[in-house]
């Protein structure tokens, strides 16, 4: 079983067990924080919070990936070349904006709730993906393109069979950045009215309940590390598939 090698399946197992089994650790938190009346966050189940968190960060990342890759392809075609400079400038400038500030600004502009958070996350997550898509397509050597055209490929075939596959490792690196940032920012989105793994952390911080903070923080940290390791595996797989040795 090759899949069982490496930390990925064990991390996944750990995350699922920790999420589902968190309420069972109540005695432990009771012992750690004897001063607290309620040492276990029980407003929502941790499974529901985890799923809501995955939904928010996942949909935002999916939208960011689709729009970002499409935009990156558009500005590297002759028809969209004129927009490329502006898209690159906006992507570079936008990435210096702190994600938490972007999230906060969404509230005066669009109101409280899950959908403003989703839009803010998707917009912010777009930037690294657009940037890396452009860079990735750009690194395809000119003679590779010429060879593709030379063997009679159409422009579309060249994009689908040559440019995108060769650019894939760089595009996936952009998606990885986007997903990791979105998972973190989605936690802060609980301050703008979305239920996520950040909810116990924020409630714990405002009510000085360190147990709540720990419960949310442990699950959130595990989720981010799991996703990062998964992307690491994906990058290795893409790298190996690119150069059959």
């Amino acid at each position: 079983m090759r899949i069982l090698r490496g930390p990925l399946p064990w991390l996944l197992l750990l995350l699922v067990v920790a999420t589902v089994g968190m309420p069972a650790t109540k005695p432990l938190f009771h012992a750690m924080f004897p001063a607290l009346d309620r040492p276990m966050y029980e407003q929502d189940s941790f499974t529901a919070l985890m799923l809501a968190h995955l939904w928010l960060a996942g949909v935002a990342s999916l939208v960011a990936t689709i729009v970002g890759v499409a935009l990156g392809i558009f500005v590297t075609r002759p028809a969209g070349a004129e927009f490329r400079g502006m898209v690159e400038t906006v992507a570079a400038m936008g990435q210096t904006f702190p994600p938490v500030a972007v999230l906060a600004i969404a509230v005066p502009v669009m109101g409280f709730g899950e959908s403003p958070a989703l839009i803010a996350l998707a917009l912010y997550g777009l930037l690294p993906i657009v940037r890396n898509t452009i860079t990735g397509i750009e690194t395809v050597p000119a003679d590779t393109r010429e060879a593709a055209l030379g063997i009679g490929m159409s422009r579309f075939q060249m994009l689908a069979r040559i440019e995108l596959p060769l650019a894939a490792p760089i595009i996936v690196a952009g998606i990885r950045t986007s997903v990791i940032v979105n998972v973190g920012t989605a936690a802060i989105a609980s301050t703008v009215g979305a239920k996520t793994l950040g909810s116990p952390i924020i409630l714990g911080l405002s009510g000085s309940n360190t147990a709540y903070v720990l419960q949310g923080a442990i699950l959130l940290a595990l989720l981010a590390i799991l996703l990062d390791v998964a992307f690491e595996r994906l990058a290795m797989w893409l790298g190996g598939w690119r150069r059959p040795a």
Binding site: G184, I188, A217, A221
Partner: peptide, 21 residues
């Protein structure tokens, strides 16, 4: 350092609270 960078900021702040207090 890579793992630390991966942990979301709010989680790292949260994880530091208990040991420090």
């Amino acid at each position: 350092l890579n793992v630390v960078q991966t942990i979301p900021s709010i989680a790292l702040f949260g994880l530091l609270i208990a040991p420090l207090s």
